[in-house]
Design a protein around this nucleic acid. Structure first.
Ligand SMILES: [Mn+2]
Ligand SMILES: [Mn+2]
Ligand SMILES: [Mn+2]
Ligand SMILES: [Mn+2]
Lengths: 224, 224
DNA sequence: AATAAAAATTAGGTGTGACTAAATTATAGT
DNA sequence: ACTATAATTTAGTCACACCTAATTTTTATT
């Protein structure tokens, strides 16, 4: 029962997101996400894969995946992160482009009591300010049937539920375009060549977005 | 400009409280407060006293005091701690005997923005839930003219402004006796021999407190 | 002033988590 | 199949902040 340090939590969190698509996470990808040298990742990953209750599965040159134990630990931190972001925006007036850093620090240090109290204060929310799903107290990740805005075709209509971005500048840009969770979208025109999509946001004048943006926005077509 | 780590912050905070009475803090006293070995303290203190901008003044066998730089850093952490305790109690429903640990962890990781936002949300409070003074945003410690309850003599009257205790069990005990900030006290009887003081709290039936308790409670005699 | 006790420091060592440089293994193009 | 490139691992270091054991310095007692 060795302790799960802040560092290890950050590793697990990144492994979780990198393996979300089903594939093992490569050393290099992890190193890039964590901002450290690949060699350092190899060393840490070997440690995490050892012992009696390994947090990750790892075979040389084959990449890393989470064990059930590791996944639980990752979801715990992700729940902290997303609840914190929600709390900072809703209760303390942070802007949505400014919460990530604060949440990423505090997520490692709040107690279960703190987690539970802010969850109650917020009414046990399911999504954070960016629409990311918040794992339940039992650490289940809710399922999400949204699709990328880039898959929308005229004349489909949809509602934004999620924006996948941590970057401040991008978030501010999206907000200025009205591309925030809850916004109503209608696809107006699609260009096969550059994958640009012309959309109408909340019945305003149409705007054109490239795939760098439309890949990061997720919508549901027939919301209840 | 080497970074002030969490560990260093805890050292500075303890040195601040130990040197509050004017005397230098001894290695042993610091070690006891921090729960580490005296030899470790010596090592750290030597480091803190070195470099171009030392955080402490230190001469072998003479104890430690804070430099102006070190004092600033200590007050910054103390402000964080006390604002956090106040926020946890006022906004999140923590009980006053349960906030210390959470605040002592988070104090090292909140940003200046977080500090400022909770201060505003609380209306820039001057005292934390135990009545401890909160350093100003400019890191000045307000002055406190309170005196120990143990110095009160019949038939003096006073109001509790501060309770000096981090220990949960003691705090719960004090609360059960009504000995909380704001309570009105009248000294009824004093025993020279065992220093017991019989007091009336908020016009209830008198109780007797020993000096272990009355030394930790601070009052003002003529509140405005 | 001598000496016993207490306080503080030095010496040597540990685990964590990073680094760089060098070596190895895998992948892709010809 | 061969080879160049890219990905990954190994080897060797380092800073941090702690530890125990041994030594030195201070202080208190007689
Ligand atoms: Mn985030
Ligand atoms: Mn983090
Ligand atoms: Mn406290
Ligand atoms: Mn602390």
């Amino acid at each position: 029962m060795k302790p799960i340090t802040q560092n290890i939590q950050d590793y697990l969190k990144e492994i979780y997101t990198l393996t979300d698509g089903g594939e093992a996470a490569s050393t290099t990808a992890l190193a890039a996400r964590l901002g450290i040298a690949p060699a350092s990742v190899t060393g840490m990953v070997q440690k995490l894969a050892g012992g009696t209750h390994p947090l990750v599965n790892y075979r040389k040159h084959q990449g890393v995946t989470l064990t059930p134990e590791g996944k639980r630990a990752a979801l715990e931190v992700i729940r902290h992160h997303r609840l914190l972001e929600t709390y900072l925006v809703t209760m303390l007036g942070y802007s949505w482009d400014n919460v990530h850093e604060e949440a990423c620090r505090l997520e490692h240090f709040i107690s279960e009591e703190f987690e539970s109290r802010i969850a109650v204060a917020l009414g046990n929310p399911i999504r954070d300010p960016h629409g990311e799903l918040i794992p339940t107290p039992e650490l289940e990740m809710p399922s999400d049937e949204s699709l990328a805005l880039s898959a929308l075709r005229p004349p489909q209509k949809a509602v934004i539920v999620r924006v996948r971005a941590d970057d401040s500048a991008l978030l501010r840009h999206l907000e200025s375009l009205g591309l925030v969770p809850g916004a109503k979208i209608q696809a107006v025109e699609y260009s096969l060549f550059d994958h640009n999509l012309r959309i109408q946001v909340d019945e305003k004048l149409p705007i054109v977005v490239g795939s760098a943006i439309s890949d990061k926005i997720f919508v549901v077509c027939n919301p209840l």
